[in-house]
Design a binder for these strands. Structure first.
Length: 699
DNA sequence: AGCACGCCGACT
DNA sequence: GTCGGCGTGCTC
């Protein structure tokens, strides 16, 4: 008898079990209930190993699927993904697996077993009983002694499924034809009986078509406003530019008639796209367990999914990743994976093409053969803070706001969260102290200048070393300050939107005049129908965030703002000390990627991603010296190795009462794996693809 | 992850 | 004298 290698959704590698008593058959890829620390847990069989001499292996309780839940393709993907992420395979499974329905679990004592084995009071176990209600430890004891008979299966709940037309499999009989036409016309039918009535055929006909796969059962489809496909002569590696409606049409052109997986960074964007694709089925965390289970059992031809779609057992013709630069692709817990590289891995292992589709490409994908759709030139107004007067609003800014006021329209004022700066800047010449190693601005902390990437530290110069003027710390105004200013000086109603302050925006959404002061949260929200002005009082606050991706992020933000309204082009006004910044130049040129090519060259010169992989080790402890000590010990263990940066205190040095330090490692996947093998994994948390260097995400 | 084991500091 | 904090090891 062989041994089952079972992967559980736990941060561990696979575990070995003997097959369930009396089981003979193919187990690979099927879900299996196994005893785990006295309970029963569900895992996936990822390998069938030859029998093993180890005496103490336990038997799995039961296999839970008729046919494989994951195919070898998905298992291979999990394995490779784990290697790429430096994570245990079970952790990756935890991230990507859909939730399971609850288990139905019945137990009884084997008929031939001696009931005298039972502790008194449990005679009932001679007959089938719900396992719940019995002490799991007792059950496990009986199980281990081989006297327990068990029935385990997923509880079947009937999700509200509708009848949909699928593929015709050949000639249809006259009645079948009628049923098929009727369903095409209806789009979907709630029940077989309903369709039979409408088509004037017997239910048997509908049943037959369902069984043959000409019809399929699937969740209700929403009404769609389909878009005209825009076809490209060749399949590019990325598609950028255009307006949202253009990209919708391009996506339609890409996937129509194909089996396609389309990945989205967040549900709101997914739904905005989904409205225009009648053939596509959604898959995301908002769906019920049953709906998701259904999609895994029988994946339809087109799925619009969040990261959970990566593991769907389907042979796609094409994978599309929408807005690959979005930070929402970053999983904040578990393996902390960043999804686009995993999508690329998935496509590669399936041997199918992958296309990135978004307004602005990420630096990571810039080298792919691209197709860039023309972009409407942004209406950009730069206010040079080196010359202009007034803070937080310059005279020019007030003039623009007053125009909005006079015309009774809407304005958006975008703020960083806290008005946090910690950056020194020369009042006259614009000089900023930079890290000599990292080409990042140094942060001003506790009377020292500090690089949060490599840990470089120096005393702040008393005067500007270039021109001898004073160094100042320009402070970005926070949401509340801006709100107060606007409220005092404008007659328009002023609203706030941030994670913790959420005014009722109803009047604005109806189109009434007003000003909204918001964080970048607005980009997800519903749009302001009469938006005329977008103002960033301190645009530089977005540039100098102290990690090497900040400027790319700022570039993406500005382009996203130009698209905030689908029809109008609101004026984008930026108050900045850096009007000549290459990001601004890029927008003025009307090119979504001119700046990025420049940025990519810079990254290459500095040996930053995408030229090399970078990963982050985080050390956190309630006692600052302990955290520091451990971070130093990690660095010590890697002493003399290339590409080790830090330790440095995280930019937010204390998160949830713990002091955080981090180290950054650069290199190829293989080399990083070799470095990590020398470290004790208990002392750090690993981020395989850090997007920012801001403290701990989650535990 | 989640749990048990074991070792040291501050309390009824 | 114990309670309980966390560091350590282990899970088929």
């Amino acid at each position: 008898m062989g041994v089952l290698s079972v992967l559980l959704p736990l941060p561990l590698g696979p575990m070995s079990y003997l097959p369930p008593f009396g089981f003979a058959g193919e187990a690979l890829g099927r879900r299996v209930a196994v005893p785990w620390r006295g309970e029963v847990r569900v895992g996936v069989v990822v390998e069938e190993l030859p029998a093993e001499a180890r005496p103490s292996l336990r038997h799995a309780v039961a296999l839970l699927d008729e046919k494989p839940f994951l195919r070898p393709q998905e298992i291979a993907f999990l394995r490779e993904a784990a290697r790429y992420l430096f994570a245990p395979e079970g952790l990756v499974l935890m991230d990507l697996l859909p939730p399971f329905p609850p288990l139905e679990h019945r137990v009884r004592l084997l008929p031939e077993a001696d009931p005298g084995l039972l502790p008194p009071g449990l005679e009932a176990l001679s007959d089938w009983q719900e396992a719940r209600g019995f002490d799991p430890k007792l059950l496990d004891l009986l199980r281990e002694n081989g006297v327990l008979e068990e029935e385990v299966r997923f509880r079947r709940q009937n999700p509200a499924l509708w009848l949909h037309p699928a593929e015709r499999d050949g000639p249809l009989s006259e009645e079948e034809e009628r049923a098929y036409r009727a369903l095409l016309e209806m789009g979907q039918a709630r029940s077989m009986a309903e369709l039979a009535r409408k088509a004037g055929v017997s239910v048997r006909v509908v049943q037959r078509l369902l069984k043959r796969g000409v019809f399929r059962l699937a969740p209700a489809r929403r009404p769609a406003e389909p878009v005209e496909p825009l076809l490209l002569p060749e399949l590019p590696g990325r598609i950028n530019g255009g307006r949202l409606p253009d990209r919708l049409r391009l996506l339609m052109g890409l996937i129509q008639g194909k089996r396609a997986l389309v990945l989205f960074p967040e549900v709101a964007l997914l739904e905005a796209y989904l409205r225009h694709f009648p053939e596509a089925y959604p898959l995301h965390g908002g769906l019920s367990v049953e709906e998701r289970a259904r999609l895994f059992e029988d994946p339809p031809g087109q799925v619009f999914a969040t990261y959970q779609g990566l593991l769907l057992p389907a042979d796609w013709d094409l994978i599309v990743v929408v807005e690959e630069g979005s930070e929402s692709y970053k999983l904040s817990s578990g393996s902390r994976a960043f999804i686009p590289p995993l999508a690329e891995l998935r496509a590669r292992l399936l041997g199918v093409p992958l296309v990135y589709l978004g307004q602005v490409p990420s630096v990571e994908v810039l080298d792919r053969p691209g197709y860039t759709f023309p972009v409407p030139r942004p209406r950009l107004h730069l206010v040079d803070l080196n010359r202009a007067r007034g803070w937080p609003f310059t005279g020019e800014a007030w003039a623009l706001l007053q125009q909005v006021e006079a015309r009774g329209r809407q304005a958006l004022v975008l703020s960083g969260r806290k008005g946090y700066s910690a950056l020194l800047r020369c009042r006259d010449c614009g000089y900023k102290p930079m890290c000599p190693n990292c080409a990042l601005p140094l942060r001003y902390h506790e009377h020292r200048l500090l690089c949060h990437q490599c840990g470089h530290e120096e005393p702040p110069p008393p005067l500007c070393p270039r021109c001898g003027s004073d160094l100042i710390e320009p402070r970005g105004p926070g949401l509340d300050w801006l709100y107060k200013e606007l409220k005092e000086k404008l007659s328009l109603p002023v609203f706030r939107l941030s994670r913790d302050k959420r005014d009722d925006l109803e009047p604005l959404l109806r189109g009434e005049p007003g000003v909204l002061v918001a964080t970048t949260l607005v980009l997800r929200g519903p749009l302001l129908p009469d938006l005329a002005l977008v103002l960033l009082p301190y645009a530089d606050g977005f540039i100098y965030e102290g990690d090497f991706r900040a400027q790319e992020r700022y570039h993406r933000l500005l382009w996203a703002l130009t698209e905030l309204h689908p029809a109008r082009r609101p004026l984008l006004a930026l108050q900045t000390f850096e009007p000549d910044h290459p990001v601004h130049q890029g927008l003025l040129e009307g090119s979504v990627e001119a700046y990025l090519h420049r940025e990519k060259a810079l990254r290459e010169a500095l040996d930053y991603p995408p030229k090399t992989r970078m990963l982050k080790l985080e050390v956190a402890h309630p006692k600052e010296p302990v955290a520091r000590e451990r971070a130093l010990a990690l660095a010590e263990a890697l002493k003399g190795e290339e590409g080790v940066m830090g330790p440095a205190p995280a930019p937010v040095p204390r998160v949830k009462g713990r002091y955080v330090f981090h180290l950054l490692l650069k290199g190829s996947t293989e080399r990083l794996a070799a470095l990590l093998a020398r470290l004790d994994s208990r002392w750090y948390k690993l981020d395989p693809d850090p997007l920012r260097f801001v403290g701990l995400l989650e535990d």
